[in-house]
Write a protein that binds this DNA or RNA. Structure first.
Lengths: 210, 210
DNA sequence: CCATAATGTGAACTGCACGTCACATTATGA
DNA sequence: TCATAATGTGACGTGCAGTTCACATTATGG
């Protein structure tokens, strides 16, 4: 986030306009998908003429890419902070689930879009963006894996799988359950307590002595 | 699968043509996504004229929908059989993982497409199809939940979460890990033994006495 | 072998969406 | 106040993709 200080009134206005355009685009993309939204429509929703939209973004893909990269970056840093802020490994994981839940709740449209283009195919938009997002996601998974690795090293966790695989598993489970909650909160309310989700990992389904 | 008997040569030929068209469409859709494939292209790949394509399918969406529903149906019935064929609950789950892995391996293009449109957004194509697929998926999850429920009732499983949630978790984990394997088999080879995946659920990460 | 039906073909029609640009409007500051 | 620059506008050019349909080709069976 850039500071608003040291900017002329005009610059602040332009920034606001840019944000409005991105917001309009985000809503439309997340509602209807990249291909089913026209630049005309975005301009209309943001209350600008198409020409103005093109003054801010080279083309549709640039607009989309800008949108996604900005959002993904902010998500990644929030999640990274979440697993770095606590000392205890278990608390790190709880933090992760809590923060991720909050992000999902606060920014449902982006989340939907993120899933659409990330989990979905690698072809919805040009490959370039997708790779960038995948790379960032991969980076985060590696950080999450370090938490599991440390936990296992300190013998707080049993080594039921490779650290990276555990990170993938946790990522997958949180995505799925949060997604469930996002799409049908009345059927699948998401619990406040992160342990309800984490217990699926923490406790074993079958009683096995080590 | 319809029997090929009792069909005239012509009818068999037409069926073959239909299959060729669907196969060409499948490959292209899974490579480039619904919106980035033209009917022209599909016709070309299947070695027919566009007009012929339209003799078989009302329009592009009909073609796509036919394709997906046929495939999803066959997947669902294979997976349903997998969890019904064994008696023991644990074996049912192992069967499920094994069969799903085989399906992923055998039909990678469809799987990619399935993920693209199912996991992704509910808007890549018209809502109709998506809902139909979601409904089928939901049905299957309920069947899978019954396995967990029975296992818990018979005290073969500890009740670490609601049966439906366990079904969701297993579905999510298999999707994620199989997807990983599908996209980068050299980095993440999928193991033959289904327990390597199931252990994440079966064993608890933290030692907790009941 | 030929008349008729069934099937296959692809040029052309239609509409839409991206992106441009000449002009209109608004802001600046001398 | 007004000349000049900066910004905003939306009609239009361009190309592409879905769909149609009149005609060509092939099959049927008498």
């Amino acid at each position: 986030m850039k500071r608003n200080e040291n900017l002329t009134r005009r610059e602040r206005e332009k920034q606001k306009q840019r944000e409005d355009m991105l917001a309009a685009a985000l809503t439309l993309f997340s509602e209807k998908g990249y291909h089913n939204v026209s630049m005309q429509e975005i301009a209309g929703k943001a209350e600008f003429a198409i020409g103005t939209l093109y003054k801010f973004f080279r083309n549709k893909e640039d607009l989309y890419k800008t949108l996604m990269v900005e959002k993904v970056d902010s998500f990644q840093s929030a999640l990274t902070a979440a697993i770095e802020d606590a000392d205890d490994e278990i608390e790190k994981l709880r933090n992760y689930v809590r923060v991720k839940a909050a992000l999902f709740q606060a920014d449902a449209p982006v989340i939907r879009l993120y899933f659409a283009e990330t989990r979905g195919a690698s072809f919805n938009v040009r490959a370039g963006l997708d790779n960038e997002i995948r790379k960032k996601h991969e980076q985060f998974l590696k950080k999450l894996a370090l938490v599991f690795e440390a936990g296992i090293r300190k013998q707080r966790f049993r080594k039921i799988a490779a650290p990276y695989d555990l990170a993938v598993a946790l990522d997958s489970l949180t995505n799925t359950f949060l997604h469930l909650w996002l799409e049908a909160p009345e059927l699948h309310p998401f619990p406040e307590d992160p342990d309800i989700l984490l217990n699926i990992l923490f406790q074993g389904l079958i009683e096995i002595d080590p």
